[in-house]
């Protein structure tokens, strides 16, 4: 098999995930796009492992490790998203702007409400 096929497919999948991470508003959809990017990397690892015929099979071992780390990441990420939703009532990533730097210096007074769950 030509090596360009899996490499090109992995590059396109990675860029699809990149678009999703940058363009999506819901935090869970952002996590789905991160999964797409991780899978693109896994496909690259497997393809190059099969191409190089590594005796240690480092590519496939690293793919298994990446899958396990992705499972851990999705668990922690969903727990954080659920906590944010429970505290803020929304999981849209572009509405969580409490720690963003304000453009005008007179709006810095609103940083007192950065953690409403503590103030409540």
């Amino acid at each position: 098999m030509h090596l360009a096929y899996p490499a090109v497919l992995a590059a396109l999948l990675f860029c699809t995930g990149l678009y999703g991470v940058l363009a999506r508003r819901n935090a869970i959809l952002v996590l789905m796009s991160v999964e797409l990017m991780l899978n693109a990397v896994n496909l690259n690892l497997v393809a190059f492992d099969v191409w190089l015929r590594d005796t240690l099979h480092a590519g496939q071992a690293l793919t298994l490790f990446t899958i396990a780390i992705a499972a851990a990441e999705i668990g922690i990420g969903l727990a954080i998203v659920l906590m944010v939703y429970r505290n803020r009532g929304t999981s849209d990533v572009d509405r969580l702007r409490d720690t963003a730097e304000s453009r005008e210096p007179d709006t810095t007074g609103t940083t007192g409400t950065a953690r409403p769950e503590v103030a409540a």
């Binding site: 396109l12 940058l22 363009a23």
Partner: peptide, 21 residues
């Protein structure tokens, strides 16, 4: 479902895809 910067995201993804491919 999509935030306001989706066209910027589309540009970034297109540039990255063309360069990588």
């Amino acid at each position: 479902a999509d935030s306001g910067n989706r066209w910027v995201a589309l540009g970034v993804a297109a540039v990255a895809a063309s360069a990588l491919v």
